[in-house]
Design a binder for these strands. Sequence first.
DNA 1: GCGGGGATTGCCAACGTTGTATAGTTCGGG
DNA 2: CCCGAACTATACAACGTTGGCAATCCCCGC
Lengths: 341, 341
Amino acid sequence: MYSSGVPPGLKDVAARAGVSIKTVSNVVNGYVHVAPDTRARVQAAIDALGYVPNVAARQLRSKRSGVIALAVPELQSPYFAEVAGLIVQAAERRSWTVLIDQTDGHAERERNLVAGLRRHAIDGLIFSPLALTGEELARGGETPMVLLGERVWHGPADHVAIDNTAAAADATRHLCALGRRNVAAIGAQDFASATTAHQRLAGYRAALDEAGLPFDPRLVARVDRFHRADGAAAMAALLDRPRRPDAVFCFNDLLALGAIRTLLERGVRVPEEVAVIGFDDIEDGRFSTPTLSTVAPDTARIAHLAVDLLAERLGGDAVAATPAREVRVQHRLVARESTAR
Amino acid sequence: MYSSGVPPGLKDVAARAGVSIKTVSNVVNGYVHVAPDTRARVQAAIDALGYVPNVAARQLRSKRSGVIALAVPELQSPYFAEVAGLIVQAAERRSWTVLIDQTDGHAERERNLVAGLRRHAIDGLIFSPLALTGEELARGGETPMVLLGERVWHGPADHVAIDNTAAAADATRHLCALGRRNVAAIGAQDFASATTAHQRLAGYRAALDEAGLPFDPRLVARVDRFHRADGAAAMAALLDRPRRPDAVFCFNDLLALGAIRTLLERGVRVPEEVAVIGFDDIEDGRFSTPTLSTVAPDTARIAHLAVDLLAERLGGDAVAATPAREVRVQHRLVARESTAR
DNA sequence: GCGGGGATTGCCAACGTTGTATAGTTCGGG
DNA sequence: CCCGAACTATACAACGTTGGCAATCCCCGC
């Protein structure tokens, strides 16, 4: 620990150890050819003074900041919070710091973020876009980027996601297998960039087809956002329509929890009268009543892969030119009480 | 937008505008004495080249990074996720960037964080400590710090919190007012640094006293962490003890949701047989079945105050020397189905 | 005994920005 | 019409670090 007001620099360490500044720098950076006793002497000085490298200077010189950004629509959503936590942990192992940004799903915030990347001297970006289209993302410049989530896009960025359509089909198939014939869906969205919703809807339709059930628009509820309140409202709307569902596939767990709330509030028994399945496997669903069946993406793996892919882009100069990679992550169906027989 | 691979610097802008580097710097920083037409010319050059100031260099020179850190035990917890989101928003208005750190409540991680502050050249820290004691925090050096949460501590840092004991007493009082006589508590912790738990327990005892009910250790369940699983396990333990509670005050909403899950699983009706109240007012509780009564801290205000206090410390040189301030934030009781009559 | 090569260390310049000092320029008042 | 004050713009040095290169030294093989 230093006692004066000014943090010590390489200069101070060098003076104390009786070597040149550069040698200290070499020791700090683990350069190989430093004589053992010199290294020891320098290390001692470092410890004594409590020297800590100045990130700003280092970054100015080497153009690497050791900071990556993670941009998610909202931290309040348990799914994103979980992903964020896992990514922070994964980044830590590479001794990176993660700067977390919230876009709130606003196109403008997402645009600003991508545009303003250079401002904060960020080495790379892990981005879970909601509103932005591929072309806009492409303007991000040369900062390495890994896309998260279900958006299909072919640009200069890697992409980690589960097979959304297949996962949605699995969920719907699970409901059909219970013998339900009026399988509703909550979570459709009609704006163009809502790829997640589109894909899950496609999976839903595919599974219906497969089961020989006709697609009925009256059984599909659209939502603005993927929150509990939207799920609750959508469920209420479905119940008020002529054809009453006996099962509901919700495009995420929050929607499902909201839907269940509405059902129970109206005295509809879950799963006896209406079976419900969600998507994401957030912790809430494991302790709700009834516990929530869901599709569980391999979140941990998603986080790891995202960080690994970014690391590759950052590390190798050779890899940097590699074309964008598309990585699929496994998912699995978790059956709980909300779809029990 | 620039087209070459290298971001333009003041130098390039200066060359294009036919002025000196410093003049461009003056324009960028809004220095007053720049002739209007010079300013216009420089601005044009800036726009044309898409110049963006280099943060590293700026920071190296001025020792301000525009980044504050927020350290919370875990993002996965809805309460902290919400606080984090709000703080990010508040910081945005001051055009600060927030670096989010997770400590997982490990003393060592918290220590490293405080110690490693200088590494990342962070202007200030908003910290919600779980494990660290006051003395350890004091070693943080001179980085301005605002403490969040209920920890009592008198050191060189400002502190924003609700009156935890009073809030806990309110919650317990609410249960007593329902006529319940066997009011249990879930969330006690016995390690010394668990101030939150200690304070809430104190409030619980105070309210019992007030209602003329004796304190019974058999009605108090301790937990390791404040998660749903802990609440579920604690409730199970309480139900297995001889004296059966007819009401439970859980030290946070997650514990409460876990407890309710156990109750319903065992066929105990909530709130008829056992009333449950939580703490934090997370969104889950508004859509659970039954909906969860809780104590709602004014989270938005906490976030704002934290950022404001930090801003004051950072801004004024005069204020920087001001002794630590202690700020209390309001809370209010939200009665929902889980404590309905 | 000598040249070559690797090990080890030091010097210099540069990264992009801003504070300080200073020079030139204009303007109003005496 | 001159002088000081205010305005405008510039040059230079520093912030702390690292890359490139040069310098030195030691050891080995011939």
